[in-house]
């Protein structure tokens, strides 16, 4: 199996700190979820992952956007870029970068789940005939994606995977497994269109989305549970998985 080749501290020099894992689950009702997938060039793909993770072939960049109208920190819109991978034998997404429009929510997501997000402008928009997400930092657009021609799906046609976040924990730098639970009430598929992607803006200049795969949307009631698993970043999960708490 291919494994990542870049130390996690190099990939994520600004990993947030998680001091404690014993938090109560947080409910996120009526979240609008939009997700795009694009294959990325596989030439030097192992450089995009830490040794603990294995790229899928082909590797895919997954753009995951949430519009959460209600949370303990108020409404927020969040956009993430993840890379498809395996942790052990499990499908996961390795968090490359994120932008959020609510600093309090961003702080809580980093502190409790290792989801580091810079504060910027995130617009998550769903129309009857399309969906669109646009993200800007300091006035510069770093992402614009569109989904056309919605095609209704059954909610159970959609698969939402856990993510792996870099975080500094009491045990050291780890990949923590972020595994929200979602109850989907609506789902549809779109034709994906990438209008703008600034790899530098997402902190990974070698990331080149080059082949559209799919986009989909869903309405869901979510729960952010406490973290349960982490893995050492330097060895595969069969050797380095740890149970938290």
């Amino acid at each position: 199996m291919l494994s990542g080749a870049t130390p996690l501290e190099t990939l994520v020099p600004d990993a947030p700190e998680i001091r404690a894992f014993d938090i109560e689950p947080v409910a996120l009702p009526d979240v609008e979820i939009l997700q795009w997938s694009f294959e990325v060039a596989a030439g030097e793909v192992t450089e995009l992952y830490p040794p603990a993770l294995h790229p899928t072939l082909p590797p895919m960049a997954m753009i995951v956007a949430w519009s959460a109208p209600d949370s303990p920190w108020g409404a927020f819109e969040l956009a993430q870029v993840r890379l498809s991978c395996r942790s052990g034998a499990r499908p996961r997404g390795f968090l490359v970068g994120a932008v959020i429009d609510n600093a309090a929510a961003g702080g809580a997501l980093a502190e409790h789940w290792g989801l580091r997000a810079r504060v910027g402008r995130v617009a998550v928009e769903r129309y009857y005939d399309a969906a669109r997400v646009e993200v800007a930092l300091d006035g510069d657009t770093i992402l614009a994606v569109r989904g056309d021609d919605p095609d209704p799906l059954q909610p159970n046609d959609i698969q939402l995977f856990a993510a792996m976040h870099a975080a500094r924990t009491p045990a050291g730098l780890r990949l923590v497994q972020f595994d929200p639970t979602w109850e989907l009430t609506r789902a549809e598929r779109y034709a994906p269109v990438l209008e703008a992607f600034d790899a530098d803006g997402w902190g990974q200049p070698r990331l080149e989305p080059n082949y559209p795969v799919v986009a989909f949307g869903a309405r869901a009631n979510g729960t952010l549970p406490r973290l349960r698993f982490a893995t050492r970043p330097d060895v595969n999960a069969f050797e380095g998985a740890e149970t938290l708490g």
Partner: peptide
């Protein structure tokens, strides 16, 4: 388990 199965990449009935 490392194969990229269709359902994982592309939601379809």
């Amino acid at each position: 388990a490392h194969l990229l199965f269709t359902r994982e990449a592309y939601p379809t009935r």
